[in-house]
């Protein structure tokens, strides 16, 4: 297991606590909680060793599309593909920033 931390300057403010996904084979869970800081902190636990560069690429692909809010995001990854990872992160961000949506699945 590898643990990683990424930090990006936050672009937006309002998030509600959100949880999507599951730590099943080829899947991941993404939890978002509000944060008082000006940053988006992303903490990752992954079963895939040596994946830091790959995660950085995924985050860099997402940030221009979806502005990252001030939050703490926790990811528990169980060997998901980059496609599934992006899908889950986007799903979580969408739920966290939507008003009156499901808090968590």
């Amino acid at each position: 297991m590898e643990t990683l931390h990424f930090q990006r300057r936050a672009q937006e403010n309002h998030v509600q606590p959100t949880l999507v996904g599951c730590v099943g084979s080829g899947d991941l869970e993404v939890m978002i909680e509000p944060s008082d800081s000006e940053f988006s902190d992303i903490y990752i636990q992954t079963s895939t060793a040596g994946s830091e560069v790959r995660w950085q690429q995924i985050i860099d692909q997402i940030t221009p599309v979806i502005p990252l809010p001030a939050m703490r995001m926790d990811i528990h990854d169980f060997a998901a593909t980059p496609g599934v990872i992006r899908l889950r992160i986007e799903q979580a961000l969408e739920q966290a920033t939507s008003v009156g949506g499901d808090k968590h699945e």
Binding site: M1, V23, Q45, S47, H76
Partner: peptide, 16 residues
């Protein structure tokens, strides 16, 4: 975040 204390010690990804 009440996760398994034992999986973490074995380097296994936990679930919240």
């Amino acid at each position: 975040r009440v996760t398994s204390p034992w999986l973490a010690k074995q380097g296994i990804v936990s679930q919240f």
